[in-house]
Amino acid sequence: MSTIFLYNFSGLALFAIGLHGLIRSSHLLRKILAANLMSSGIFLIMIVGAYGPDQALIDPVPHAMVLTGILVSISTTAVALVLVCLVQETTNRALLLQKRKREQRGRTDA
């Protein structure tokens, strides 16, 4: 049972790495990857919480929640990726970092 408990910490680590990546990375695609990492980490912790040695003891509710979560994350990722392409296409840069320099130059959009 103790080794199963390890997955808690790997879930936590994934969440932390995802959070750090989401905030720190400059490329939008990498931010979306990091977001997916975060949700995987959370799902890991949820499923470990539901673990039971044999079939009867397993709690199915977190499994249902994780399934819903996976579908939610793929739909958000799909919209995010389309938006990244649009942002790249019209404002010509995928890095949020560069946007602040552009704004300091005071380009006003209507």
């Binding site: 199963i4 695609l29 979306i32 995987s40 799902f43 539901a50 673990y51 399934l67 793929i74 392409c85």
Partner: peptide, 30 residues
């Protein structure tokens, strides 16, 4: 390993497969 076969199936098919495919097509577009 955590006795969650449903989630394993979904993760393999959607989490890895489809999300990966989405990322690859987005990368190509970028």
């Amino acid at each position: 390993r955590l006795h969650a076969p449903d989630v394993a199936l979904a993760e393999a098919a959607i989490g890895a497969g489809l999300t990966g495919a989405l990322f690859l097509s987005a990368l190509r577009r970028l």
